[in-house]
Design a protein around this nucleic acid. Structure first.
Lengths: 330, 330
DNA sequence: TACCTCGGTTTGAACGTTCAAGGCAGCAGA
DNA sequence: TCTGCTGCCTTGAACGTTCAAACCGAGGTA
C-alpha cells in the first residue's frame, strides 16, 4: 500500500503540489473552485500530511514533551497523572502530540531536553513544579525554547509563562467551610516552611482564621508528607489544652492520617484534605480539588499562543481557583 | 545557533557524509582509524542524528504510542499510570520514545491509529486491555502494524504478542496466605462472570480452596467494581450461617469496601485486595501486586524484537507472576 | 599484462513537504 | 499600445538523512 503524498493528491486534482499545500496551509491564496476540487481529492484519497517531512521544511514538529516522574509517593502521585491526561486531550485538540521522557534529576532532565530537541525538534516543554532557582528554566530560556511550567516560580525572578492553582484560596475555602459548620478552633497540618506550595496553603488557612476574628497561633503543625506523619501531628494537636475541632491539611496523605487518629480517638473533629486523590474518594474525605484538566488546557493554550501566535513578549500567567469537594467528613 | 548536521561532522572529520552515516549505523564498514576520527568529531560538535530526516529515508520513526484513558475509576486508575511510567523508561533505554493519544471508544481509537500512522509514521502501538473480539487488534493486524497488548486476548483466536500478569496465580497466593494463617472458610468477592480478567482471578481462589480440601461453593459474590459494592457483598457473606473468616477480592476497591464493613462490624475477618493501589497502601490492606515495571519492559522487549529483530513469525507471549504485598490485614 | 576482487570511500538521488521565485492571464491607468 | 499590478498557479530548491551505485587503489590470479 503506497503512501498518499501531496503529489498523489496533486495529480488526482490536476493541480501542482504547491497548490495542494496552499489549500492546506493558506486557503485564502486559492480560488474557491480549485480549493473545493483539491479538498475532495484529499478526502477521496485519505491524504494526511506527513509531519516529519513538514518538520524538515518548517522546523516545527507539533510535539510537546512532558516529564514523567520516576518515583511516586503512592497517595499523591495520581495528581500528575490526571494532569497528564488533560494535557494529552488539550494538545490533541490543538493539533499537538505529547511525548514523554524520564529523568531522575535536573541534570538528567537537561540532558533529555538536549536529546529531544536534537532528535525530534520538539516545539515546547511543559515542566511540572519548579524548584528554587530552577536550572531547567534557565537552560530553556537561554536557548529560547518555549516552555510553560505548571506551578509558580516561587522565588526566582525568572519571568516565564506559568499556570498554577491558587492553593491559598483552596485552604481558605476549606477553613471557611469549617467556620460555617460552627467550628471556632481550626488547626492546620502542613509541611515545613520553605516550600512555596506549602507556605501558600498555610497562609490561606491563617488569613481566614484571622479574618473571622480568631488567632491561628499554635494551632498548626509542620511535618513531612505522609500518613503516619499526619496522624502524629493530629495526636499532638488533639492533646492541646484547648484542642481544635476542625483540621485543614496540606495534603490528603496528612489528612488521611489525621482522620484515622480522630476516628480511633472517637473525637468530634472534622478534617479536610487537599488534592482530592483516590484515597479521599475512598474514605469519604472532604478535600480541595485542583482543576487539573483546566490547568492542562491552560498550559496548552499558553504554548499554542507562544508558538503560533504573534510574538507578544510579556509572559502570561494563569492562576486557577480550586474547589471544595464535600464528602462525609464535614 | 546553526544545527549540527551530518555534513558539519563530515567536513570537520574530512570525510564524506556517507562515511559519517556508516560510523553511526554500520561501523564495521569503516576503517578503525577513520571511525575514531569521526567519532571524535561527533563528540566535539555534539552532533545528534535528526530523527525526522532519518525517518524520511528509512520509514522508521522510533516512536511507539500508548492510549491514555479518558475516564478513570479513581481508585484503580493508578495501575495504568505505573505501567506508563515503566514503559517510558524501558522505551527510552531501547532508543524509542512514547507518544500519547486519547480515544473515547474503539472506533475513535482506530481513527487515532490512522492519524498517527499517517502523520508520524509510528513504529508500533501498545494496547492495554483487550475486549472480546477486539476490532483494534484486527485493524492493526490487517495493516501489518506491529503491536503488543498488555492483557491476554481472552476469547479471540487472534494470535499476536502479548504480555500479561497471571491473575489466577495472584489470587491463589492470597488464598494460600489465608489458609496458612489458619483460615478454613475463605470467600471471594469478584466481578460478574464474562470478563476474562475477573474469571481468571476467581479461578485462582476456587482452585486453591479445593486443593486444600475445601469447597468454595456459595462463598463468592459477583458485583460491579466499587467501594460500596464491595461492602455490600461483604455484608452479604458475613450474614451466612457459616460465614467466611477470610476474604479475597478481585480489586482494592472491593477489598476496601469489604474491609470497612468488617471493621465496622468488629469481626475477625482478614481481607486481601488486588493491584496494590495507593488506597491499599494508605489503609494497610494486604494486596496482590502486579509487576507493572516488568510488564512494561516486556512489552518494549517484544516490540523491539518485532521491529529490529529477524522476522520470527510465531508471536511471543509473556506471563508474569504477581506477588503478595503483606500489610496489616493478614 | 590484463582482468577480477575487495575493502574503504565518495557521489547522486530520493524520502514528502514548504519556501522563494517566477509565469501567465486579465485588467486598469497612462 | 505599453506598463504595471493583481490573482492564481507552477517550478526548482532545500530541509538532513540513508540507499544504491560508483569509484579507487592494492593485491591476487590467469
Amino acid at each position: 500500500m503506497q503512501r498518499v503524498t501531496i503529489s498523489t493528491v496533486a495529480r488526482h486534482a490536476q493541480v501542482s503540489r504547491q497548490t495542494v499545500s496552499n489549500v492546506i496551509n493558506s486557503p485564502h491564496l486559492v480560488r474557491e473552485e480549485t480549493r473545493k476540487r483539491v479538498e475532495e481529492s484529499i478526502a477521496a484519497l485519505g491524504y494526511r500530511a506527513h509531519q516529519a517531512a513538514r518538520l524538515m521544511r518548517t522546523g516545527r514538529s507539533r510535539l510537546i514533551a512532558l516529564r514523567i516522574e520516576p518515583t511516586r509517593d503512592g497517595i499523591n502521585g495520581s495528581v500528575l497523572d490526571r494532569f497528564l491526561h488533560g494535557l494529552t486531550e488539550a494538545a490533541d485538540a490543538a493539533g499537538y502530540r505529547v511525548m514523554l521522557y524520564t529523568a531522575a534529576d535536573d541534570a538528567q532532565e537537561i540532558a533529555a531536553f538536549d536529546a529531544l530537541l536534537g532528535a525530534y525538534d520538539l516545539d515546547a516543554f511543559v515542566l511540572t513544579g519548579t524548584n528554587h532557582g530552577d536550572p531547567r528554566a534557565a537552560w530553556l530560556t537561554a536557548r529560547k525554547v518555549p516552555f510553560v511550567t505548571f506551578g509558580r516560580p516561587w522565588d526566582s525572578p525568572e519571568r516565564h509563562p506559568w499556570v498554577d492553582v491558587d492553593g491559598a484560596a483552596g485552604t481558605a475555602q476549606a477553613t471557611r467551610r469549617l467556620l460555617d459548620a460552627g467550628h471556632r478552633r481550626i488547626g492546620f497540618i502542613g509541611w515545613p516552611a520553605g516550600s512555596g506550595v506549602g507556605d501558600d496553603r498555610r497562609s490561606g488557612w491563617a488569613a481566614t482564621v484571622r479574618a473571622a476574628g480568631g488567632d491561628p497561633t499554635g494551632l498548626d503543625r509542620m511535618t513531612p508528607d505522609g500518613v503516619e506523619e499526619g496522624g502524629q501531628a493530629a495526636r499532638d494537636l488533639l492533646a492541646l489544652a484547648d484542642p481544635p475541632t476542625g483540621l485543614v491539611c496540606a495534603s490528603d496523605s496528612l489528612a488521611f492520617g489525621a482522620l484515622q487518629v480522630v476516628r480511633a480517638a472517637r473525637r468530634e473533629v472534622d478534617v479536610i484534605g487537599f488534592d482530592d486523590t483516590p484515597v479521599a474518594q475512598a474514605v469519604g474525605l472532604t478535600s480541595v480539588s485542583q482543576p487539573l484538566g483546566q490547568a492542562a488546557a491552560s498550559c496548552v493554550d499558553l504554548l499554542v499562543s507562544l508558538l503560533d501566535g504573534d510574538p507578544v513578549d510579556q509572559p502570561s500567567q494563569v492562576l486557577l481557583q480550586p474547589s471544595l469537594v464535600i464528602r462525609q467528613t464535614v
